[in-house]
Design a protein around this nucleic acid. Structure first.
Length: 425
DNA sequence: AAATCGGGGAG
DNA sequence: CTCCCAGATTT
């Protein structure tokens, strides 16, 4: 059975609606819904946010599930609901507690937007989750997918929820060759799904698609032999299941090179610096990081101990702050010494340069690697010691003992550095 | 339309 | 290694 793909293209150009494959008349669509929902009733996963139809629980789960697997979300979900049982609790929570609960889950703007949306609900919707598509969509962090998911699951609104899963299933079901990496393709899938969506049980229909995509219609080696909708699947009939979905390649993550300075004072505390308000890992804490060139990174890597747990002393000794800044500058790209300026200035103001020393041991403890969606960090861990007192620190710095690290919000890359530091101590 | 935003699991 | 996951927002 061929699609009317060519016809669809024409219709698209002439602004007339796309058509389902001609064999999908009303009877076939109804048959499909029955078969699919019967399968869901038997096979659906038991998940904590499926225990009832509480819009708040569904909302939280949907935000957590953005670009995140179910197994990863479950422990976070329980922790979150225990910490913030209601929308009001979420709206008034301190940011540090919010981030701590989300720590490790990634895409941290999600939890900041979650709180903004909670505050919107308190102020604009009398603390009750809104129940119309326009109002749901008006909340921070809720885009077209999540609005459809909440609308259909929590309020039985006949809305599709188009995500990566659904696009994969639909592309195979109807041999849709639109590039799912392009944002403009979303509306094509939206149109198809609106025509086959169950208006009686839209939430279950959408969740059935998710379960199918997760367990059966998987990205690689789909299990067509056990698929409940095999007889409806056009690509299966044509033997072209693996041709779908069509997805253009993503640009590769850009490599970035850093030196991280683990500076310990006499009290056994380490210097931490908070990242800025904007950009990657905003307002989270790390060792001071300095970007270095690829060449410098390679040069420093040679100074790493050949065997872990056994540091190699590459010189060093008692250095003044100025020496340290110069060393850092020499090690790193131009301007890298600026990270030590605050120490140097404080020393000059107090005229106690002699008292404030960093024993810059110049020991490279090792390296960690961390991949983001668009960046690949390579970070060398360098250890130093200082007798600086904490009163000299500007606001975005703090001294902290490893024993209290668990109370501070660390991104994953920082946690890897801490693990390396403690393992090589 | 393209880039930015984390992290982890599977193959 | 590569791919991609119950995506949204910003540029």
């Amino acid at each position: 059975m061929r699609t009317k793909q060519g016809e669809n293209e024409k219709k698209k150009g002439s602004k007339e609606p796309l058509l389902l494959p001609f064999s999908w008349n009303k009877e076939k669509t109804a048959d499909f819904q029955t078969v699919f929902l019967d399968w869901y009733d038997l096979e659906k996963r038991s998940l904590p946010w499926r225990e009832n139809q509480d819009p708040y629980q569904i909302w939280i789960s949907e935000i957590m599930l953005q670009q995140t697997r179910v197994d990863t979300v479950i422990p976070y979900y329980y922790r979150f609901m225990k910490s913030f049982p209601s929308i009001e609790d979420l709206a008034k929570a301190p940011e540090s507690k919010l981030l701590k609960v989300w720590e490790g889950l990634g895409y941290y703007s999600r939890v900041r937007n979650l709180q903004k949306a909670a505050q919107q609900i308190v102020s604009d919707f009398m603390s009750k989750m809104p129940d119309t598509m326009a109002d749901i969509r008006s909340l921070k962090g809720i885009g077209p997918y999540t609005a459809g998911a909440i609308g259909s699951i929590a309020f039985n609104l006949p809305e599709p929820a188009i995500d990566g899963n659904v696009m994969r299933v639909a592309s195979r079901l109807f041999c849709i060759d639109a590039d799912i990496a392009k944002s403009s393709s979303r509306q094509i899938f939206d149109f198809y799904m609106r025509q086959i969506l169950s208006t009686n049980r839209p939430g279950d229909f959408n969740q059935a698609l998710m379960d199918l995509g997760s367990a059966v219609c998987t990205p690689s080696s789909p299990k067509c032999e056990i698929c409940p909708i095999q007889s409806f699947c056009q690509s299966y009939e044509e033997g072209t299941v693996t041709h779908f979905p069509v997805k253009s390649k993503k640009t590769k993550a850009k490599p970035m090179y850093y030196a991280a300075f683990a500076i310990e004072n006499d009290a056994g505390e380490f210097l931490l610096r908070q990242r800025p308000e904007e950009g990657l890992l905003r307002k989270m804490w790390t060792f001071p990081l300095i970007e270095i060139s690829n060449e410098k990174y390679a040069e420093l890597t040679k100074m790493m101990p050949p065997i872990r747990h056994k540091q190699k002393n590459i010189g060093g000794g008692q250095l003044s702050l100025l020496d340290v800044a110069e060393e850092a500058s020499a090690y790193c790209a131009a301007g890298a010494g600026a990270d030590f300026d605050f120490l140097w200035q404080s020393a000059q103001e107090k005229d106690t340069d002699a008292l404030i020393k960093i024993v810059w041991q110049k020991k490279v403890r090792g390296e960690i690697s961390h991949v983001f969606s668009h960046l690949h960090w390579h970070v060398l861990l360098v250890y130093g010691h200082t007798s600086t007192s904490s009163s000299l620190l500007p606001g975005n710095h703090q001294w902290a003992k490893p024993s209290v690290f668990s109370e501070i919000v660390f991104p994953k890359a920082q946690q890897k550095l801490v693990d390396l530091l403690l393992a090589t101590k």
